Simulated assay, not measured.
Amino acid sequence: MHPPIQIYTTRYCPYCIMAKRLLQARGLAYDEIAVDDDPATRQAMTQRAGRRTVPQIFIGETHIGGCDDLHALDASGELSRLVQAN
């Protein structure tokens, strides 16, 4: 069992779609938190991540960053280590 993965998204964001596809391809379950029409949730995401853009991805309490950060972690093998280490 890996630590919970949370991904803050918007409906039509291509980077959100790519990040979710990568997680799915790796067989990783995640909780999607949509911020499209919910200013309070977007504000909570901004406070938690320190960024306003989506996606914002967390593994457990570790802030991964966005789509490019997730792909870089995967390419380096660190994504696999992160989900197995916790």
Rank of each mutant, 00 (worst) to 15 (best):
A49D: 01
K20C: 10
Q43R: 08
M18V: 00
L23W: 02
G65Q: 01
H71S: 11
T46V: 15
Q56F: 14
D37T: 13
D68N: 05
E32G: 09
A72L: 12
R21L: 14
G50C: 10
Y12N: 10
P55H: 04
I33F: 06
Q43H: 13
E61N: 12
F58A: 08
V35Q: 09
R51F: 04
I64Y: 02
D31R: 11
H63P: 08
D68I: 01
D74H: 14
R42A: 13
Y15A: 08
R11M: 07
D69Y: 01
G50H: 03
I33H: 04
M18G: 07
T41M: 15
L23A: 04
I33W: 06
T53C: 08
F58P: 06
D68F: 00
C67K: 00
C13Q: 00
L23T: 04
G65R: 00
T41D: 04
D31C: 09
R52S: 13
L73I: 11
M18I: 06
D37Q: 11
G27T: 06
A40D: 15
I57Y: 09
A49E: 02
M18K: 12
E32A: 11
I33V: 15
T9D: 12
G50T: 05
T53D: 12
F58I: 10
Q47P: 02
D31M: 13
D36G: 08
P14R: 00
I59C: 13
T53V: 06
C13L: 07
